[in-house]
Every structure is written in C-alpha cells, then in structure tokens.
Amino acid sequence: MILSMTGFGKHVLQLPSKKITIEIKSLNSKNLDLNARIPSAYREKELEMRKMIANAMVRGKVDFSLYLEFTGDDAPTSVNSGVVRRYMAQLADISAGEELKLMEMALRLPDATKTDREELDPKEYVAIKESLQAALAEIIDFRTSEGAVLEADFKKRIHNLKDLLAQVVTMDPERSTSLRERLEKAVADLKTEVDANRFEQEMIYYLEKYDITEEKVRLANHLDYFSTTLATADSNGKKLGFICQEIGREINTIGSKANYAPMQQLVVQMKDELEKIKEQMLNVL
C-alpha cells in the first residue's frame, strides 16, 4: 500500500460562543515542511499540535490553519472608548469635520480597540485536539485514495516494463546473430586473409562485451522487488525511488550495449514507461 503526499482535511468545531475551523493541506516535498497559522490565544499549544501533525503526516509540505470566529456576545475585542474620544477631540481641533467622520478616522488609529487576553480553557483545548485528529483522519483518507490511484498506475507501468523485457529476452539471440553476421561481412569486405582461430577469439571477445545477460537478470529482479515493495503495509516512497534508479541504470546499460535498432526501440519504450513512474513517484509518501 502506498500513500500520496497530496491531501486536504477540514473539521469545524462549534462551541457556545465561538466557531473553530481546522484545515490541513499537504503537497509533495522531500521532507516534512510544516507551516502553521494559529491565533495568539492558542500559541502556547502550538508545539504540541505540530507534533501531532508531524507524527501523522510524516513527510510533505503541510499547511495547518486554525481559524477562530466569535459567535457570541463575549468577544474579547472591544472599543477603547477613552482613547477614541481623545483622538476625536484632537482631530476636531485640526479639522471641523462631522462627528461620524471623526469617529471613523479615530477607529483606524493605534489602540482604538483593545483585546482582553483569555486563558485557554483545558476543556476547549481537548475539543480542539479531537477536531485536529478528525481533520488528520480526513487528510489521511484523502492520501490513501490518491495512493490507490498511484498504485494502480505503477502496477500497470511495471507490467508494461516486464512485457518489454520479455521482448528483449526473445530478441537477444537474433541480435547476437545479427552482430556476428555484420562482423563477418565487415571482415569479408576487407578482402584479406585472416587467421580463422584468431578471428573466432576476437569475435567471442567482441560479443561478450555486448552481452546483456546480467542486465536482463538484474532488471527482472528490480522489477519484482518494486512490485514486492509496493505491496507492503507501509508507504515506502523513498525506497521505491531508489529501486527506480536501479531500474533506470539497467535499462540504460542494455541500451548502450544493444547495438541493434529493434532492441534500442524497445529500450526507448522502457525509458518512457520508467519516466512516467518517476513523475508520479515524486508524490508518494
């Protein structure tokens, strides 16, 4: 099973006098990059909430937002009436504007409003943590659904690579025969006598240089290992990425040794399939 690093989770907590909305969004990243936007009233619990998110998300660029909206009459922010009156008196000395205009100007000036700092209610924080867990559960479900789509695509690509490798294996004897015939023709075109034994030794040496038996075996093993890792209970994005590198190395070596146009065409198709896997692999947890 694999998980995607892309996801979104949201949960709304309605309290008697306030509404708290928790949103978590994640995108792909090599490591955990957590950005948190939290009202000052909950700053003392930021590290604890970050730890909860980090344990659940593991990896990715994560944006965590906690929005606070007061719905009752006991909002902590109020107008600082004494300061506003002094502002209005000073503004009236400067300009003979209407009282309403003076009040609008005064309310824009510093300290026109005041906020009473509230102590965090332990029961309220417990409810916030439960809401955070609910949002994390939602984003993990999102990641799981996205991961299932990616996993299906990976299985399809690996199946295609195995089919192409089977064609390479079938074509290899034909390629060896073609290489031998081309060498014999090249020597015949020289129209000079050659030592048959020495020519056969050189022929064997040359054909061994272009032998791809090891590459075929290793590539088959890497493809099987990719499928096995894909089926594990954990999402192993980094491990699968390393296996992709090894698969690419074997495909490149086969291409460099092929020296046979039909086989090189198969190698190009294999590279195309692998590139599609690598593009999607960037989003795997």
Score class of each variant (00 low, 15 high):
L266T: 11
Y67T: 14
T229W: 01
S65F: 14
S17W: 09
L120I: 14
A220I: 04
E246Y: 00
I204S: 10
E46Q: 11
Q133N: 12
G97K: 11
L179C: 07
M281L: 15
G237D: 07
I277E: 03
L120K: 05
P39K: 08
R37K: 14
D195S: 14
S256T: 11
E104N: 13
T232L: 11
S176T: 13
E174K: 12
S29F: 09
S176W: 04
A112E: 00
A166R: 10
V169L: 04
R50F: 00
R198P: 07
F8D: 04
K185L: 15
G147R: 02
Q264M: 11
N80L: 00
E46L: 04
K216T: 13
A188Q: 14
D93V: 11
L165P: 02
L15E: 15
E250K: 10
F8A: 07
K61Y: 07
A127K: 13
L27C: 09
A220Y: 03
E69C: 01
P110Q: 08
K129Q: 15
K61A: 14
L102P: 00
M1E: 05
D116S: 13
K162T: 10
R86C: 04
Q201G: 09
S29L: 08
K19A: 05
A75I: 14
I247K: 02
S26T: 15
D33L: 03
E279A: 06
P39N: 06
V284I: 13
G60K: 02
A96M: 09
F154A: 01
N80M: 02
L15D: 06
K129S: 10
M49W: 07
K155D: 07
P122A: 06
S95D: 09
I38L: 08
A92W: 00
I94N: 01
I20K: 00
R108Q: 12
K45W: 01
Y125L: 14
S256L: 07
R37I: 03
L274F: 09
I277A: 05
G248H: 03
M105F: 09
T144R: 15
D272L: 10
K114H: 11
L27R: 06
F199R: 15
T113W: 03
E214H: 09
S4E: 02
P16V: 05
P39G: 06
F70M: 10
D272R: 03
E23D: 11
E124W: 08
D224E: 15
A261G: 08
S145K: 15
S78M: 12
C244K: 02
N160K: 12
K276D: 06
R218F: 03
L91R: 01
T253V: 08
E130D: 15
V149D: 12
D195A: 08
E130W: 04
E174F: 06
N283S: 10
E98R: 13
L183G: 11
D234L: 10
